[in-house]
Design a protein around this nucleic acid. Sequence first.
DNA 1: TCGGGTTTTAACGCTTTTTTGACGCCTCAA
DNA 2: TTGAGGCGTCAAAAAAGCGTTAAAACCCGA
Lengths: 220, 220
Amino acid sequence: MTALIIDDEIQIRRLLRMALEAKGYTVREADKGQLGLQEAVFHKPDVILLDLGLPDMDGVEVLKRLREWSSVPVLILSVRDQESVKLAAFEAGADDYVCKPFSTAELMARLSAIQRRHGAHDETSLQAGPLVLDPVHHEAHLNGQPLKLTPTEYALLAQLVRHAGKVVTLKQLLRAVWGPQAEEQSHYLRVYANHLRKKLEGSSLEIKNEPGIGYRLEEG
Amino acid sequence: MTALIIDDEIQIRRLLRMALEAKGYTVREADKGQLGLQEAVFHKPDVILLDLGLPDMDGVEVLKRLREWSSVPVLILSVRDQESVKLAAFEAGADDYVCKPFSTAELMARLSAIQRRHGAHDETSLQAGPLVLDPVHHEAHLNGQPLKLTPTEYALLAQLVRHAGKVVTLKQLLRAVWGPQAEEQSHYLRVYANHLRKKLEGSSLEIKNEPGIGYRLEEG
DNA sequence: TCGGGTTTTAACGCTTTTTTGACGCCTCAA
DNA sequence: TTGAGGCGTCAAAAAAGCGTTAAAACCCGA
């Protein structure tokens, strides 16, 4: 997951970089519009944070040029709260518009929202209730405590967390964890669901079974 | 294009209705959460404007219930500018969050933005009146409530929903659900039609029999 | 080669689902 | 009026799926 920040103020870039890296993003920066467009072309970020007040060209212009070839989600940052500017930005294809000064937490939430819509699942921090998975390091934390998982256990749990609350079919799980040739080996799931249930014991999470269909991670 | 407004203040509803109709939307209204959810089930709006301060239930709760079976774009309206509320709303699956009082033009622009994103990838879901089937998760929802179905029940109902309103012949149903070698076992259908009728009881849907021909799912 | 952790396989009793069989109703035609 | 065929209903029998446990096979670093 790569995020591109296009902003001329170094303080803002630092702040955003910290927040984004905490969420697991790889961050790239640009302090000018031209440079930002180049970055977008060469590094294909998964999301762009674009300031409207750039020294070399107008932010809306940057957005228009970008939209000629890319549909990457773009969140606009701006000091200007003028309605005409906002409308122009949305017209040009912005996904959201946030005024400075902004709340970092809200910004991250809005980022997730537009990425969710874009279809590219926000894989930076898999989370379901008190359970947090770190896809990069294959680590898990439950209620802040480290949770030891074998690779197979992790893979299965990750799959369940990705669709937390919803049923994931037996085939989907088996394909994702053991590969397509294991689609019929549903006894694997019984064994590993059992392992995970023991490790999730005492938390608010439950792995429920829908007979003949699949499994579901549920928060009680 | 249909928009659903869920808000208890009639002035707000009037204002939004005018703005939306000017944009060419068909508008539906609800002044309570329960009613809003029902509207969403029956009329499948293309976008929802949801006020958080409803008299009967919390707006975030409405959103959660909605998200159990629908991925329609939702824009939150709220008088509250608290960060925690915003975060909860985004967490629950909101697409945007606007504080009252709002600019109508900006609201329309934001609406366009989230709808633009939504149009990108359409989900495949079977529907017949108040019944929604999700083929990916093998889940069913009736009037927004989860409906528990066994694999065979699901397969049969899916077949009926695919041809909702039309007669499906005995052979077609048996082939689709039990396989070609079961074409003569019309007995199965009587048993399972019975199961489904019980589960659909109280809804507007009926499974009707055409003697000697087949079955038909009808909305009354 | 050994030892540990991990994955796979196997076996048991249990629950849920599917199949089967039985019975009574209704309709239609002889 | 009566009997045959299709239908709805119920419930028991059979099958399939599940949870659990433990042992066997596997893998990898020491």
